[in-house]
Amino acid sequence: MEGLLFYVFGGLAILTTLFTISSKNPVYSALWMIGSFAATAAVFVLLEAFLIATVEVLVYAGAIMVLFLFVIMMINFKAEEQKGLRLSPLAVLVALTFLTLFGRAVGDLGSASGSKPNELVGTPGAIAEVMFTRYVVPFEAVSMLLLAAILGTVVLSRRNSQA
C-alpha cells in the first residue's frame, strides 16, 4: 500500500513538473507547479516528515507560488515570449549525462542503501527541539537573511530605483 502510494505520488510529481517546464503559458506553469509541490508534500508524508509536508504546502504551494502568480499577472507577456521548451541538443545531452551519472552515483551508495528507515517522526515538537538548540545560530542567520531579502525587495521595487 505504502509502495503503491509512493509510485503514484512520485509519478504525479514527475508528470506535473514536466508540464510545468513545458507549458507555453506561464500561468499554466504556475498551476502545474502547485500540483508538483502537492505531490512532493505527499511523498514527505510517506517519509513521516509531517511538519515538512505541511510547510511545503503552506510556503511553497501557498506563499511562493502566489507570489509567482502575482508577478506573472503584472507582466504583460508578448506572444513570442510564450513559447515552450526550446530543445537544444547540447542541453538535452548535458541533462541526460547528468541524470545517468546521478543514477550511477545512487547505485554506488552500496551498503548504506540497505539500511532500514528509522522510527523517527518529524513532528513539530521534535524538529523544534533540534532547531532551537543545535541549529539556533543558523536559524538566526536565516532570519537575518529573510530580513535582508525583505529590505532588498523593497528597495528594488521602488519606481525611481532605476536611477
Partner: peptide, 20 residues
C-alpha cells in the same frame, strides 16, 4: 544566462564523473 546555466550543469556533471 542560458549558456551559463548549460556550462554550469556540464561542470556539475563533470564533477560527478570525476567522483565516480
Amino acid at each position: 544566462v542560458r549558456t551559463y546555466a548549460l556550462l554550469f550543469a556540464a561542470g556539475v556533471a563533470a564533477l560527478l564523473a570525476l567522483n565516480l
